[in-house]
Design a protein around this nucleic acid. Sequence first.
DNA 1: ATGGTAGCGCTGCTA
Length: 259
Amino acid sequence: MRIATWNVNSLKARMPRVEEWLGYAQPDVICMQETKLTDAAFPTMAFTAMGYESAHHGQGQWNGVAILSKVGLDDVVAGFSDQKEDEEVESRLISATCGGVRVSSVYVPNGRSVGSEHYEAKLAWLERLSGHLIATTDPKSDAVVCGDFNIAPEDRDVWDAKKVHGATHVSDPERKALQVLLDWGLVDAFRQRYQQDKLFSWWDYRAGDFHQHRGMRIDLVLATQSLADRVEYALIDRFARKGKLPSDHAPLFVDFADA
DNA sequence: ATGGTAGCGCTGCTA
């Protein structure tokens, strides 16, 4: 089963590139982030025509997460397990069961600057995600948490560790919050397979960062051990970051062998 | 070199 994740940075703007990519990458499941759409505006029919069931949790303008699947899409839950009906929470988490795997699509808050209220909210959000997983998911089951974590796990996941030292995406508290998820029972599936430095998934649009190889690996597929043991192949598709109207993120996919 | 670009939506915010 091929499971993909892609921060599309506006599905409305990115739909031609998304359709193109689905056409040649043929993922069984794809988690998307930053759709920037309301649920009403989500192009369900276009994905149906491509063979995908879909579930979307959006608010328009900002955020928005989705899961598309060719292998079933059941037990959809939008947001956190402890979320109240009337609680105003940004659309950053959606989960569903696809082909026997519990799949979550996450868009972790950016954090803006270390020490800011947005940074504290990022850490709190990650803690709540841990609680959500503990409450809803058995780490011995087949599960993946895919998405834009806005955290580069290690210094080898950024273009210049000295230049970004201590900033958001690489600070110790963020990396420790990610480690809490890993300690619960998740494996960074791409990193497990490829040990090379500087394999990035995001590059700022500005200053020609993509062509200067100034990026970060912040998009992750975290898999429970039972799935991590069955990784056959993984790829960050940098081709999708090139060309006309690309997202600032490349899609990542991981192929898992059947149990 | 605190710049630069993209998206949303129409003014400035978010990333």
